[in-house]
Structure formats: C-alpha cells, structure tokens
C-alpha cells in the first residue's frame, strides 16, 4: 500500500491553497495514509491549517530557524530524510515545489514526475509536455519512492474542516548547508484575489499599450471581483510585475471565467489557461489565435468595449 508525504507550501505563516490541491492528487492514489510535512521556523498556524484538510492522516512539523525561508538547498535534505518509509513524495507544481522537489528526488536517487495532471495508478500518471500540446502517460519504477509535483490547475483544493488530524513534531538528524542564504522577498502587495486560486481572472496583453493604460484592466477586474493576470508581452513591456504572468513559463491557472483582453494568444500563453471554465477573448484583430480557443469572442477596441461592458454589467 501507498503512503504519501505531501510537502506544505506556505508564506507569511499561512498555508498556501496549493497544498490542499496536492492533497487531492494524493487522495487519487488511494493511499493508506497522507501525511503533510510542514517545514518552517514557526510551524504553529500552518500546521493547524494543514490538519484541517480532509484526507490528511497526520501533520508532521520540523521547526528550525534555518527553515524561515524556503531555500531548496536547506529544505531538500530534511525532506529526503523525512521521506523514509513513504512510497510517494508530492509537492505542488508552484515555483516553491519546482525548486525543491527535483533536489529531493536527486538526493533519493529517483526520477521525478513533473506537473501531474491525473493519477492513472499508484505509479502511472499523466502530464503535459510541449507547452501542453501533448499529454503523456508515464510510469515510475515501483521499486523506488515516487517524487512528483502536482499541477495545481488540474486538481481542486481538498475541502477543509471536517476533521483535525494529529500534529506531531519530527526530529530529523540532518546537518544543513550554509552556502545559500535568503536576502529578501519583494512582493507585489495587492488586495485583489490570488491569481492561482481566483474563480475569475481578467488578463491584459500588449494591446493594453502602457503601464498607465493597465488601470482599465485593474478597474474592470475589481468591478467583477476578479484577479488580474497578464501575458508575457505585457510583463516584458513593464506594464505589470512578473508574478502576474500567465502561461507556460508563468502561472498555469484554471478559473471559472478567464477574460483575455488585448492578448493575441501565443501557444505559450494558451498553455496557462487551457483548463479555464469559460474563456472570453476581446481583441481588435479578428484573426488573433486567442479566438480559436475562446468560448465567447468579441472583436473590437478594448478601450471602447471595457467601459461599455462596465455599463452593461450595471
């Protein structure tokens, strides 16, 4: 039988919703246990939140000062040690999971399955390649632990609150490197919904034209309670910060409603939104590739259409 260790992602003392999505993928393996591992300098609130996720058997905590910031070189040896006795180690396929999981896999001497979108069996998974233009079925060697990252857009967050799993402090005898040090994190502070978990997202592209013009996108997003995203072109042009980028190399999202405004729809952008419930495209170029995957398309000038939309919404 399988036993799965899920690595918790957290920031500023709060659990990230990507963890509950990784728990959903773990549950699909039908294991006998799903334990969540919390590594932090201060595990209290994070562990308590993780314990409430349905399906979690135990929360294991490692509270060390060195774990104050998620440095892969520091976390990976601890995770590799904690992985003893587990058949699977899952982490969300966020920048956190992508950074740390391959380091864990190499320490364990095993291959890693990246971006698991479905579980076909305890060692068989589906994952996208070529920017999502092909889906492969991969089999991992059943003789070793499986290290995998979970494509968060493919999995709903497991529900919370039905139970509270026991929390146990883990003491790991691991010496940690000091060759890598955290300096700072510059966060784009925002009161808007989080891009990766929002049910509605409004994205702007090169067609928005300038950083100042992007206000029209923010204003419209606020009107409908949506998160704001952007194409690579808009980020490269400096209209918005990098963390808003949606696509193959940015965030992969699956909101109920995705509105692409002034975005042509390069292959690399479409990868990031393919699983959205309803895709709306607003573009002045009727030939733009975005219309090929849009559920609802509207051809026209965004600067004329957005005020009209706001008025029609009322």
């Amino acid at each position: 039988m399988s036993k799965i260790l899920v690595i918790a992602e957290h920031l500023d003392g709060k659990l990230n919703s990507s963890t509950a999505r990784a728990v959903s993928a773990a549950a699909a393996v039908k294991p006998e246990a799903i334990d969540v591992l919390v590594l932090s300098d201060n595990v209290g609130t994070i562990a308590a939140e993780a314990a409430k996720i349905d399906g979690v058997s135990r929360v294991l905590t490692v509270a060390r000062a060195e774990n104050a910031h998620p440095l892969a070189a520091v976390l990976a040896p601890q995770i590799a040690k904690a992985a003893a006795g587990y058949s699977h180690v899952f982490a969300p396929s966020t920048t956190f999971g992508k950074d740390v999981a391959p380091r864990v896999a190499a320490l364990l001497g095993v291959a890693q399955v990246s971006d698991v979108m479905s579980v076909e069996g305890s060692h068989t998974f589906k994952r996208p390649i070529y920017a999502g233009n092909a889906i492969i079925t991969v089999e991992a060697d059943a003789a070793h632990a499986v290290v995998a990252t979970i494509r968060t857009a493919s999995w709903p967050a497991a529900a919370q609150g039905g139970q509270s799993a026991p929390i146990e402090a883990l003491s790991l005898d691991v010496s940690l490197p000091s060759h890598t040090r955290f300096v700072e994190l510059k966060q784009g502070k925002s009161d808007r919904p989080d891009l990766q978990s929002a049910s509605k997202v409004v994205s702007g592209g090169r067609g928005v034209g300038s950083k100042e013009n992007f206000d029209i996108i923010y204003k419209f997003a606020d009107k409908i309670g949506a998160a704001v995203g952007a194409s690579r072109a808009a980020v490269d042009a400096g209209y918005v910060p990098n963390e808003l980028q949606v696509g193959q190399t940015g965030k992969i999202i699956a909101p109920e409603l995705y509105m692409a405004i002034g975005i042509s729809g390069a292959i690399q952008h479409l990868t990031g939104i393919k699983d959205a419930g309803t895709i709306v495209a607003i573009n002045k170029d009727a030939e733009a590739p975005i219309f090929e995957i849009a559920d609802i398309g509207l051809v026209g000038d965004l600067f004329k259409l957005i005020p009209e939309l706001e008025q029609a919404i009322g």
Partner: peptide
C-alpha cells in the same frame, strides 16, 4: 517566484 521577486 510566485509571490514576486526573491533575492538569495
């Protein structure tokens, strides 16, 4: 990183 820009 997802949250913004981290320096190490």
């Amino acid at each position: 990183v997802d949250a913004g820009l981290e320096t190490i």
